[in-house]
Design a protein around this nucleic acid. Structure first.
Lengths: 192, 192
DNA sequence: CTACACGGTTGATAAATGTTAAGAAATTAT
DNA sequence: ATAATTTCTTAACATTTATCAACCGTGTAG
């Protein structure tokens, strides 16, 4: 199970040594969660980043009654209420499991300890921050430069797992429209 | 002029030593640019991150004929076509000066060299990535959870320098609406 | 098997936002 | 100071999107 994490870590920090991996691995805690359970609730301070070895989660905000999704993360990716994790401020985000999940957690405190113990982990931390930046940055761009139909198309093209595994009404909020409107857009698109 | 950068660096990495600062400072290149000149054009690979000691720049995309702003950065902040900088891929973003600017550049190659020379610079790189993540993350959230009027209000509240120093039609694209519509929203808001 | 909850669709209508065009106001250049 | 350019505003109209409500299909718990 942690072989998956090792592969990810290798890809992120190619120069890593076996002993680094062993030190990192010691900090991992493993968890299985059922569909529907929460990893983070708004108001809590996020205490960890989590690598997903199996399953799918969503990140979402509560705006009044409505749930607005800002991300879907599946196996072989890191997920976190990262802004809260970094700032130690209560999270505005919720994270819950859309499928049964297997997770590998790395806590904030352990991560700080790793940073101090060996600079190679700074690289790890930097790479994760950079990766998350690139991901969210492209989402902001899509929101500003594309109309909803184009945003949906770009999910089909670049994140097809979302189409397969996420309910449509959640995808709708992810691209900034109502479920009804997405339904109509889809109908229009098949006509073409 | 580089005292400003030093203060920023200190705040970012409190544990830094004077010798670290000296090593960093040696890599700086200084530049003054006139209003209207470009720091980065789309298609180019971004070669640097730039600290702004004076002035104001915008980051924007070209969507057909239209310019869509994704950020305004002023003095005492870092600016970069950061996705391009990190991935070494051609930038989709443009950056130009909205005012005469004084800039302190740090090149990609120098930054890599610093990373290798001393782990403390990894912290610096990580902190910058984390900071940029937090900034863009909150922008994505605003785009998904707020209506245009609320987004404009949040600029007034949290980034008033934008209201003072950026033409309204650029702010309009930043919050995802047309200049005409922003004009109407403003009129409506003063009535309240 | 039946009833119910959930996700998705559809239609009618309302609200928000975009487009086009014109002119006013402000800024910049001569 | 005047002209030229840019930015902002306004209005009429078109388009997009949201809202509300009803209904359909599917799966599932009793």
């Amino acid at each position: 199970m942690s072989e998956q994490v090792k592969a990810y870590y290798h890809q992120l920090v190619p120069g890593m040594q076996e002993e680094d991996w062993i030190a990192l691995q010691e900090k991992f805690t493993f968890q299985q969660v059922k569909k529907g359970s929460f990893l983070t609730r708004n108001g809590e301070i996020s205490r960890q980043v989590s690598f997903i070895t199996r399953g799918l989660v969503r990140i979402f905000y509560l705006a009044g009654e409505k749930e607005i999704c800002t991300g879907f993360i599946c196996e072989n990716e890191y997920v976190s209420a990262y802004a809260s994790f970094l700032t130690r401020q209560p999270s505005a985000e919720n994270i819950d499991a859309l499928e049964d999940c297997e997770l590998v957690h790395l806590s904030f405190d352990d991560m700080q300890a790793l940073y101090k113990s060996n600079p190679v982990f700074e690289i790890f931390g930097r790479k994760i921050a950079e990766l998350l930046f690139i991901q969210i940055s492209s989402q902001t761009t899509r929101l500003l430069t594309m109309v909803p139909e184009e945003r949906y198309q770009s999910i089909i093209q670049f994140q097809p797992f979302i189409i397969q595994r996420v309910p449509q009404y959640m995808i709708a909020s992810f691209i900034g429209i109502t479920p009804e409107h997405l339904s109509r857009l889809r109908k229009k698109m098949t006509g073409k």
